[in-house]
Simulated scan of single mutants.
Amino acid sequence: MSALTLPSTTRVRLPSAGTVLALVVVVLVLVAAIAPGLLIDRSPTAIDLKATLQPPSWQHPFGTDDAGRDLLTRVIYGARQSLGIGLGATGLAFLIAIALGFTAALIGGVVDAVITRVLEVAFAFPALLLALLVIAVRGPSLATEIIAVGIGSAPGYARMVRGQVLAVRQAGFVEAAAALGHPRFAVIRRHLFPNAMRPLVAVVTLGVGQSIVWASGLSFLGLGVPPPSSEWGALLDAGRLHITSSWWLEILPGLVIVLVALSVTALGRTLQNRLGGASR
């Protein structure tokens, strides 16, 4: 008699505890950005002069600012602007990167050389410096902050897009589609673009956390969204005047920025491993 053969089972990889925690944090930030009223029932602009600069307590878990406003409420309501800046700046950066990267890789020759040199020069400048130049021209505002961070991030992404397109362009299935007589645009749309952009999806996720940190830094310098905005960097800017006496105005919003950036980065790394087929 032949031995009984048991059916093979597929091994399911469960997410790590860190990934689950990062996902919980990101979900909370999304809820705060979309419907902050579900998390807290206070107004971020409600002033109480009798409760100014109170330390963290059960009534005010993050304390209050110099106008008696609940800091936790302002952090929650500030998630919409901070997350919006992160998503908007990253989206703008990748639109610029796709336009420049695909143009350089597909046309080649002199066009590729010129775009590559421009990207190298732009990449040599610190991204924060490029953002400061944009703000100096347009003046501080929410739209300017998105544009500034997006332009500052674009050169690095454009180099990645160009390299990815060049790699996929030489793949056998792309050359086979072109040899079969498919129109050039159809080959780009059906084969080149999806396969070139697929590995960069995780990079987009990583860019959101980076953009939030950069935008917060600009706001902390007074070059971001003007007051009385509750954007996280603006909260840091407002709290630095009381940093020696009211530590919570700086430490707690700063910890939120770090936690959100780490959580988005952790999810991006996990997504990168999944898309790249990495096993742990």
Rank of each mutant, 00 (worst) to 15 (best):
F62C: 00
T64D: 11
T64C: 07
T64S: 09
T64K: 07
D65M: 01
D65K: 02
D65T: 01
A67W: 15
A67G: 10
A67D: 11
A67N: 12
A67F: 15
G68Y: 03
G68H: 00
D70N: 10
L71T: 06
L71R: 08
L71S: 02
L72C: 03
T73E: 05
T73N: 06
R74A: 04
V75K: 09
V75C: 07
G78S: 03
R80K: 03
Q81A: 11
S82G: 05
S82D: 04
L83H: 07
I85M: 02
I85D: 02
I85C: 03
I85L: 09
G88K: 11
G88P: 12
G88D: 14
G88R: 13
G91A: 14
L92N: 13
L92Y: 09
L92G: 10
A93D: 10
A93E: 11
A93T: 13
L95E: 09
I96Q: 07
I96V: 11
A97F: 09
A97K: 08
A97Q: 04
I98A: 09
I98V: 12
A99T: 12
L100P: 06
L100E: 05
L100I: 09
G101R: 00
F102Q: 04
A104C: 00
A104Q: 02
A104T: 03
A104E: 07
A105W: 01
I107S: 10
G108E: 07
G108Y: 05
G109W: 03
G109E: 09
G109Q: 05
V111G: 01
V111R: 07
D112T: 01
D112I: 03
A113K: 12
V114Q: 03
I115K: 00
T116I: 07
T116N: 04
R117E: 01
V118G: 05
L119I: 01
E120F: 13
V121I: 14
A122D: 12
F123Q: 13
A124V: 10
F125V: 15
F125Q: 09
F125C: 14
A127V: 12
A127F: 13
L128D: 08
L129M: 11
L130G: 03
L130T: 11
L130I: 15
L133H: 11
L133K: 04
L133W: 09
L133R: 04
L133M: 15
L133A: 15
V134S: 01
V134F: 04
I135E: 03
A136C: 02
V137T: 10
R138V: 13
R138A: 13
G139S: 12
G139H: 08
P140N: 02
P140E: 00
S141M: 08
L142S: 08
L142N: 10
A143C: 13
T144N: 10
E145A: 14
I146E: 14
I146N: 12
I147E: 14
I147N: 15
I147V: 15
V149P: 08
